[in-house]
Write a protein that binds this DNA or RNA. Structure first.
Lengths: 349, 349
DNA sequence: CTGTTAGCGCTTTCAT
DNA sequence: ATGAAAGCGCTAACAG
């Protein structure tokens, strides 16, 4: 494949490569006639400037990395959409990097992005401890972390107020008369998991209850993890009346566990998910869940990254507010346990 | 950010840049002692070769594009996973490009990928007509199309045997005693949609029925599209007993339409989806659907792309077989219409 | 307004 | 086994 180069265009148009360069970069100081001539030749030859050569000359790649644990996890595609829409508008291309929840692979993709000389990176839900992550951030031009705080000089940060979301969930359950609440807390390495745990304990304490460690169990952030954790929690003690789940997939797993144990949701057990992924409103019973705008997370992170790429380090932190969405799995009013009947549908969206 | 260059390493190690280059590229002809020396300096200086400079020198970018209509559509993330796992193993990075179902944007991303000088591209479910798509394929080093056939000299192709899947669905419905079958056929520009339509007509004809155009309605390939199309189909004629949907999201929309019209699934209407995305097995009623291995599509396309990048144009076509998975929304046996009762659960998977 | 001269950081080719 | 020179395709900096 013999690509047309800037020199080919220059020769054909009878000008210098510099003039061609000025035309393709829309520099002002070009006579309309030369510009037109050059444009015509570019068109005729089908010339497209090499991004590679440009990058080497300008030290900018117009490429950024998007690091996610797993794009097949419904939480991340929308973030990717939000980030891409924002970045593409500004001419950036995005490298998608799945870490498949593996810290080693996360290190590998960060190195790969460094080698590609990306102008910046958005790193979602990093599974690396601070002392492994931070030194690597220094090696990138610009970084924004999602779901994790960062020292402002190292990276911007876009977080959801996880603690607040969990507090809302606990209050909702308590308000509905559910006294014994279990918590499927997610992967212990995750920052979100720790924050939500904090919110859980805080809300209980504020309500005059004592958090019971046995009722708080870590789990993989997926359907299987929720199923297993819920099974152990619900079969271990007979009196759990409410379950707050790390995310909606975990909640779906918990739903299955309940069905298997012959427990009715929400009559026997109320279940609250988190994230409000697409399926939350579609399954039956529909999920009461903590809604977070994933697209906005991605768009915000992208805007912040563009700021950093251009040298602006402010603002260095954005905290998005989550909001409880009440649906069937944990309605406002609950019936007495074991008094089966159809749950009320409190709306949804 | 003052990056360490190969010259820095060479100077510090007291060798030529060439020697350093040989070390980082694992060329054989290097004395063990210099190799060790150079490696030590590389380590100490934290040197990482610039992919940009390498690309300019070698005319290879070790980057490929992955073009999808919408990564938030659950059909594509798994394809992305399959492709990435395969490509990353070989050192390739992936540009994710969402076309958001917009032909203009699709053209734009293809140009962007050309400018980035990617070594190849996987294009999923292109919405461009042949006469617009093919000329653009010529401008790429290597291309594999997913869900669309291509002239072997232009691109490889990974397809699902869509017609066969739809035939299975029709036969299943007919076998269950459903005579009047509607078809929500998806976006008319899509190749899959045309293939499935062909399968639909063929299966009916083979069974001695005549396809009724009024029962075949195009729709957007999402929840909303399915809802609207199902609504018009089911409210227009009162006798539709089975619905075959372009994909599972469309089926979910159809489910909602049925609920709204007071029709029971599967008692009044049997519904068959397509793709077997994650939610298919989780919703209630669980979806009978045509299962396709998305991950395998991605991995196959990636392997084929690597072949093409390396000059091998064989095989140029892979056709994956879909397989009907029978769940609650369209069980093997059906009850007489309007004889409400709980549907049998025929399995799942 | 346009051209010339140097690189950007690597690899390639040819010497040695 | 190692080095010197040239070049990948573009832009930056300076001339004119």
């Amino acid at each position: 494949m013999n690509r047309v180069t800037i020199a080919d265009v220059a020769r054909e148009a009878g000008v210098s490569t510099q003039t061609v360069s000025r035309v393709i970069n829309n520099k002002a100081e070009i006579s309309p006639s030369t510009r037109e001539l050059v444009m015509e030749v570019i068109e005729r030859l089908g010339y497209r400037p090499s991004g590679v050569a440009r990058s080497l000359a300008t030290n900018k790649t117009l490429a950024v990395g998007l690091v996610v644990p797993d794009i097949a996890n419904p939480f991340f595609p929308e973030i990717a959409r939000g980030a891409e829409d924002t970045l593409r508008e500004r001419g950036y291309e995005i490298f998608l990097c799945n870490t498949i929840e593996d810290p080693e692979r996360e290190k590998a993709v960060l190195s790969a992005l460094e080698d590609k000389r990306v102008d910046g990176a958005i790193i979602c839900s990093s599974r690396l401890p601070d002392d492994q992550l931070f030194p690597r951030l220094r090696r990138q031009q610009a970084v924004v972390l999602v779901n994790r705080p960062a020292p402002p000089e190292l990276a911007g940060s876009v977080c959801v107020d996880d603690a607040s979301g969990t507090v809302q969930a606990v209050q909702h359950l308590l308000g509905a008369g559910r006294e014994v609440i279990g918590f499927l807390s997610g992967p212990s390495r995750s920052h979100s998991a720790r924050e939500r745990t904090r919110g859980f304990e805080q809300a209980l304490t504020a309500a005059g209850r004592r958090p019971v460690p046995e009722l708080m169990v870590p789990c993989a952030p997926d359907h299987e993890g929720g199923y297993e954790a819920a099974l152990s929690l619900l079969s271990g003690r007979g009196n759990v009346e409410g379950l707050i789940c790390y995310n909606d997939l975990v909640a779906v797993g918990a739903l299955r566990a309940c069905a298997e144990l012959g427990l009715s949701v929400p009559d026997d057990v109320s279940i609250v998910g988190c994230d409000d992924i697409m399926i939350a409103g579609l399954i039956s019973p529909s999920l009461t869940t903590i809604h977070v705008s994933k697209y906005e997370i991605g768009a915000t992170a992208a805007r912040m990254l563009l700021d950093r790429i251009e040298g602006r380090h402010e603002p260095s932190e954005a905290i998005l507010k989550p909001e409880l969405v009440v649906r069937e799995s944990a309605p406002h009013m609950t019936r007495p346990r074991n008094a089966h009947g159809q749950a009320t549908n409190d709306g949804g969206r």
